[in-house]
């Protein structure tokens, strides 16, 4: 467990050691302006291997807009680093119920946002086929997608731990 966070980030090509805590990330963050997300602090916690950062709900307040990453004077791929921390958090079982539901939705119907009756009607009004040309129309494609998710062990990863 020692130095787990910096090591994982480094292995992914993200050197948070070079962070000088200037705060450009936090100052640029559209979420941090309105929410409790403090990107600078998350990077410091990761750098200091404070694993509690993985269970910090603030990790999920980032909209992945990449503004911090674009503006970082040390060129740290900050958003990429944050995504890496999220993946580690998920591996340890931290996942919002709403996000678990989206995962289940994709496993069930191949879409994060599934077709509903209201939209079918709107499609018909526009002269479109009520069922779009996606995985929703082709049972064999949906089965193929489910098999692929299984091959990735995604069902196991997102199952409640």
């Amino acid at each position: 467990m020692s130095e787990e966070l910096p090591k994982v980030l480094k292995a992914a090509g993200l050197d948070v050691l070079s962070c000088m805590q200037c705060g450009t990330c936090t100052g640029s963050c559209p979420s941090g302006r309105h929410t409790g997300l403090n990107t600078r602090r998350i990077l410091r916690d990761a750098r200091k291997n404070r694993v509690a950062v993985l269970s910090d709900d603030a990790l999920w307040l980032c909209t992945t807009c990449y503004t911090c990453q674009e503006r970082c004077p040390r060129d740290i791929p900050i958003t990429d680093a944050l995504l890496e921390l999220r993946r580690l958090a998920v591996k340890k079982g931290f996942m919002l119920p709403e996000h678990r539901k989206i995962s289940e939705m994709v496993m069930e119907c191949g879409h994060a946002v599934p077709l509903d009756e209201e939209t079918k009607q709107k499609r018909e009004e526009l002269g479109l086929d009520p069922i779009p040309e996606t995985v929703q129309k082709y049972p064999e494609a949906l089965q193929e997608l489910r098999n692929l998710l299984k091959a990735c062990k995604f069902d196991k990863l997102t199952a409640e731990k």
């Binding site: 559209p30 909209t63 709403e98 989206i102």
Partner: peptide
């Protein structure tokens, strides 16, 4: 940003 991305609209 519009505030929707990154799972924020669904999660928060």
């Amino acid at each position: 940003c519009c505030g929707a991305g990154g799972g924020v609209r669904s999660g928060h």
